[in-house]
Every structure is written in C-alpha cells, then in structure tokens.
Simulated scan of single mutants.
Amino acid sequence: MDRIEEKNLSMSNNSYTYDMSPAVNTQGPHKFLTFVDQPDRDIIRELALQLANYYAKANFSRSQWKKQKKVHCQWELRTKDSNGQSVATRHTSQPFHLDDFIKDLRENGAFDLKKYDLPDPMPRWLDSSFTAWMDLYAPANGAKHSLAFRAHLSLGSKFPLTPTIDREGAMYTSFQQILIGRIAKLRIWLVENSHLTQTDEWFQNFRTLISEVVSLVDNTLHQFYFKAQYDPLPGWKFEPSVLGERHGRRLMDKLAWVYQITGASLNFPPGKKALVIIKDIRNHLQHFDPPCLAWTCEEMAEWLNHIRLVMQYIWRMRQCASAMPSLSLISLLLQKEAKFVPANPNKPRHPRGPAVGYPTTSPDALANGGTPAPGPEIIILEPRQEKVLL
C-alpha cells in the first residue's frame, strides 16, 4: 500500500497554505487507536446487579443491596460416573455482595467464578458448546461400517439434528462461544496493532470482525427460533405464520422474533442503530459492491465502538429471554471504548465533512449519484506510469 506522506505530496497553486509539520516523535511506530482508561461504569453496575440477583435468587435494586449483608449461593454439580449414572455434588459458595462484583468487574474486566465458588451463569440452551475433533478411523472387523461418535445439542430432544462423525473430522454443537471469543480477540488486536492499518492483514482482520459481529446476531436469533420450536421455555410462543420464514429474510426483520417468541420488548435504540451501520459495512466488504473503500481512523474508532453497542444489544436479547450472559460475553461487554490518537495532537482538527472517508465510497453514495463534491483543495492520486501493448 502506498503511504501518503509529506514528501510525496505536490501542491497546486492556490491561496491556501497547510500545516505539514511532522508527527510528534514517539518510541516505536505510532498507534492510531487506543482504549480509554476508564471502563463503562453503567455496564459494570448493571452486569454486577444482574449477577448478584441471579446467584442470590433475588430481585433487589442497587439501593436494596446496600442494606443487605453478604449472602451465599447453594448449587449442585451434576455429573455422570463411568457407568453413566448421575452423581450430584452440593456446593455452597463463598459469601458475596453486589459491591464485591462491582469491584471485581471494574478491576479485572471479567467475572471470576472460582473466587466465589459459583457455577457458570450461562444458559445451556444458548451457550453450551461441545466441540470434538476426531483424528482416528476405526473400521469394524468383518463389517462395512466404522466406529461413530454423536453429539447432542441443548435444544431439546425433539431437535432433529445430531452432529455425527465416524472418521477424521470435527463437530460443533454451538457457535456462540466461538464467535464471541473471536470478536473479543479481533477487536483488541485491531486496536493494539493500529500501527499496521496500512497492511492487508489489518484490513482482513477488520473484515472478519465485522462479519463475525453480524453472524453472532444472526446465530443468536436462530437459537431463539429453534429453542422456541423444539423446546420452548414457559410462556414462550412459536407461531410460524407470525415468525415467517427463516431464510430469505432481512436480518433487521428477524429481530422481531425476540418479542414474538418471548413476549418481551427488545428496546435498545443505540444498539439497533449500531447494528444497521455494522451490517451495511459487512455487506459492502463481503460483496465488494461498490468495488472501492475509504475510511479514516476516526471512523474506525467509531465503528469499533458500534461493535460494543451491538454486543449490548445481544445482551438485551438475552435479557428478554431471562438468559444470563456467558463469561465470554461478560468480558466482551467490559471491553473499553476505543478512541483515535492523532500522530500530532498539536494540530487543530476540523470536523469531517461528507466528502471524505467512508461516505465517499459507501453504497448510499453510489446510489445517490457518486462521491460528494470535494472541498476547496483536493489532490488526485493515480498511477504514475502505465505499460500498454503496441
């Protein structure tokens, strides 16, 4: 990729002069993105309250928790012995309080189950994942079949599919944790490696991140659909004529499934607005229509923060189903806001106009007749030579 620098800029004659002072000297390459210092207090408080009430089997407000002493959680670990018989082991957690959870989430950016000897809060029907890789092939002696392994999903016994393999291969029973983990790692990687924004690797990882975010929304909605169809929770409804077809539908239309199934309203406008933006970028970068792209680092920081809002939107979906967030989703929700870091902070920064960055290459710009008119100064970049056959 050609880097636009002061040394290769040529200015046309006009009445304007420009501040071309170089970047402030720093140790190592400049990173254009970073994370803010403080975590989101509102998310921490809401997550902590949800967790504290879940384990205490209560519905206390924050002010009510202030009046409470530390409590314990009684829970049971159920396993199967070598004979397939169920074995239950009772546990009593360490004492905890809402304030303990707030402190831990703020300091660690994650929820530590082991510290309190608490069970995983994840809903099995949504998050329980069994991933198996088979590196052997065991044909039967004297018969034309081989040893097979089968995995059951947590969507009820009536769900018709059971992943099965009888030779080298793999099987997955849920994609929730795979997608959430990938989104969390990629968002951090893009910020920490924002000195590499000019590389193909950075761009491809951004494309992957955008795609995974939309896929997680789609996957969550389909988990709701199948759970309602084959193993509905109390109070859920499954009316195919109301829900409509699963395929050939706009993602934004399928969001209505949450209310149509659970009866709870999915009301988080910031998350829905962010999802529209991320989905449109995903579509652009999947189909490369239009076949060009421009973005500024300021826009990139905004997009990475839109992803945080989409994760909060998914959290709200779970709340509509009375489903707790998984540990991996909690960690993702607690990721900090991204912000743009200019290489020379001493320069005044003017507001972005409609004729720069993504608006110059978006599908909307193409549909509306092309790139908006530029400002008073524009430099055309084009190849300096061309080789043609005679």
Rank of each mutant, 00 (worst) to 15 (best):
6 E>V: 15
10 S>C: 10
10 S>Q: 13
15 S>H: 12
17 T>V: 01
18 Y>G: 03
36 V>G: 02
38 Q>K: 15
40 D>G: 01
44 I>S: 02
53 N>I: 07
56 A>P: 00
56 A>D: 05
64 Q>N: 08
65 W>D: 08
67 K>R: 13
67 K>L: 11
73 C>M: 08
79 T>L: 14
79 T>Q: 14
85 Q>E: 15
86 S>H: 06
87 V>Y: 04
87 V>G: 03
92 T>C: 08
99 D>R: 07
100 D>A: 01
107 E>L: 11
108 N>W: 04
111 F>E: 09
112 D>T: 07
115 K>I: 07
117 D>P: 00
118 L>F: 03
119 P>Y: 01
120 D>Q: 03
123 P>S: 12
124 R>K: 15
125 W>K: 10
126 L>V: 09
129 S>D: 10
129 S>H: 11
132 A>F: 12
132 A>I: 12
135 D>N: 15
137 Y>M: 11
140 A>G: 10
147 L>H: 10
147 L>N: 04
148 A>D: 05
148 A>M: 06
150 R>H: 05
155 L>C: 06
156 G>T: 13
158 K>S: 12
163 P>M: 03
163 P>S: 03
164 T>A: 01
166 D>P: 01
175 F>S: 08
176 Q>W: 06
176 Q>L: 04
178 I>R: 11
180 I>V: 11
183 I>L: 02
187 R>D: 11
187 R>P: 00
191 V>E: 01
191 V>P: 02
192 E>P: 02
196 L>W: 11
196 L>A: 14
201 E>C: 01
202 W>S: 06
204 Q>I: 06
205 N>A: 02
208 T>L: 14
212 E>G: 00
213 V>D: 11
213 V>C: 04
216 L>P: 02
217 V>R: 02
228 A>F: 10
230 Y>H: 09
245 E>S: 14
248 G>E: 03
250 R>H: 10
251 L>T: 08
251 L>R: 07
263 G>V: 00
265 S>E: 14
271 G>R: 04
278 I>H: 04
282 R>L: 13
290 P>Q: 07
290 P>R: 07
290 P>A: 08
291 P>L: 09
295 W>A: 03
296 T>V: 05
297 C>A: 12
298 E>M: 06
311 M>H: 12
314 I>T: 04
314 I>M: 05
316 R>L: 12
317 M>F: 05
323 A>G: 09
325 P>I: 06
326 S>F: 04
329 L>H: 03
332 L>A: 14
332 L>C: 09
334 L>A: 01
338 A>H: 01
339 K>P: 00
340 F>R: 07
344 N>H: 07
345 P>Y: 11
348 P>W: 03
349 R>P: 03
356 V>H: 04
359 P>H: 00
362 S>L: 07
364 D>N: 14
365 A>L: 06
368 N>F: 08
368 N>E: 14
372 P>R: 05
374 P>Q: 04
376 P>Y: 08
377 E>D: 13
381 L>R: 05
382 E>H: 05
383 P>M: 00
385 Q>N: 13
387 K>W: 15
387 K>N: 11
387 K>H: 12
387 K>G: 07
